[in-house]
Simulated assay, not measured.
Amino acid sequence: MSSLLSRIEQAEPLCAALMLGQLFGPVDVDASLNQLEAWAAMGRQRLDGEAEPFAAYVRFFYTELAFGPGHDLFASDMVRMDKVIAYRTGGCICLALLFCHLGKLLGFDLQGVNLPGHFLIRLRLASGRLQFYDPLTGKLLDWVQLESQCQALLSDFHHDDEEDEEALPWLRWLEPASQEDIVTRLLLNLKSAFMYELKFEQAWQASDMLVQLHPDDPYERRDRGFLLQQLDCHNGALADYRYYISQCPQDPAAMLLKLQLKHYLREPAILH
């Protein structure tokens, strides 16, 4: 799995999303990329001669190709890029990555933005001005909406250093997402979706890759421990829980876990 993770980290974002899907079933990455090339050829025809080419691209993606959010955004198919391409429905991060990838093939300067709570599309115009779009609808977000959303998020974050808070305003959240940001967010969404569907083995696979990416994160270790417990891998669960408790001893959940550890079975189990 570590070699797959290394290849994913080096891949272009949409390819990385497709490769992550290979953890959970067969995915023909080349076929998906060929489909995107075919759509790009269609898009060039639709944009030819358009006075407002980007507006024409938005119509092409959301109306003609009919991409949009699914009925159940918590479902794992909304996060698996191969399924999003096949069914043309997905969550915000997959739609954003797909929109950016196809748009780049058509010549637009597009990047994803890893805003906490929502993934956005960022367009850089020829003038250098930036515009932001909601990937679920393709609608342009004005600066008042963006600032309001970011200021609301700021209330959930606390900085001990006032100078640091001034040096890092909410605008930092509107910078392009790094490859690690994208892979982490995809894995977090996959983990959550599989847990929602009670598919604990698949959720563990996503969680294990998150721990490989962030080995010192006690909360990722806690989540992997929970999933190992669901799979009757109690020794592995104990190790992860103990790491979490040692790093977050004052966390109420850690205190509760500490009391419960003595009740866990300690017989080794094999994960199939």
Rank of each mutant, 00 (worst) to 15 (best):
H118T: 10
L105W: 12
P53Y: 00
Y57E: 11
E220I: 10
C15S: 15
Q179K: 01
L146V: 03
L47I: 07
A206G: 06
F119A: 03
Y62V: 09
L171V: 03
G68H: 04
R242N: 09
E163P: 10
V183E: 10
Q151P: 09
S155Y: 07
A66S: 09
A56L: 02
E180P: 09
L257H: 06
I8Q: 03
Y133S: 07
D109W: 02
G128E: 06
H234E: 15
E50W: 09
V211K: 01
L105Q: 07
C248G: 08
I121G: 05
I270S: 13
L174V: 12
L168C: 12
Q151A: 11
D216R: 06
F200R: 02
L97H: 03
A86Q: 07
L4V: 04
A51C: 13
R122H: 02
E37H: 05
G112H: 00
K104F: 02
D161F: 11
I182L: 10
H71Y: 13
R185Y: 01
P176A: 06
L141G: 00
L271G: 00
G25R: 07
A75G: 09
S76I: 09
Y133D: 10
D251V: 06
Q260W: 14
T63M: 06
L115F: 01
P135A: 05
L259F: 15
E64A: 05
R224L: 03
L213Y: 03
I93E: 05
D156A: 03
D30A: 12
Q205A: 15
L106I: 00
Q45N: 08
R185I: 07
K191D: 12
L33V: 06
I245Q: 01
L105Y: 05
L115D: 14
L5E: 09
K262F: 14
G128H: 04
R185G: 04
L140R: 01
E163K: 02
D240S: 02
Q202E: 13
S3W: 03
A239V: 07
L188H: 07
C233F: 12
L186D: 06
R221H: 01
E201R: 04
D156S: 13
L188T: 01
K83F: 12
L186A: 05
E52A: 14
L4N: 12
R59P: 08
R44V: 11
H101D: 11
L257C: 02
V113H: 02
C150D: 08
L120E: 05
F200E: 13
D82S: 09
P249D: 00
H263W: 15
R124H: 11
P249M: 08
Y62D: 13
R222V: 09
E12A: 00
Q111W: 10
C150I: 06
L271V: 06
A51P: 08
D77F: 11
A239F: 00
M209P: 10
V58I: 11
E201I: 09
A75Y: 09
T89W: 14
R44W: 01
G117M: 11
R129K: 14
Q10R: 13
L198Q: 14
P249K: 06
E52F: 13
A56P: 08
K83W: 04
Q247V: 05
L14T: 00
D28Y: 05
R88K: 11
R266Y: 10
S246P: 01
R129F: 14
S207Y: 10
S246T: 04
K258N: 15
F60C: 03
L141C: 10
Y264H: 15
H272F: 14
D164R: 12
R80L: 14
E9G: 07
L168H: 14
G236T: 07
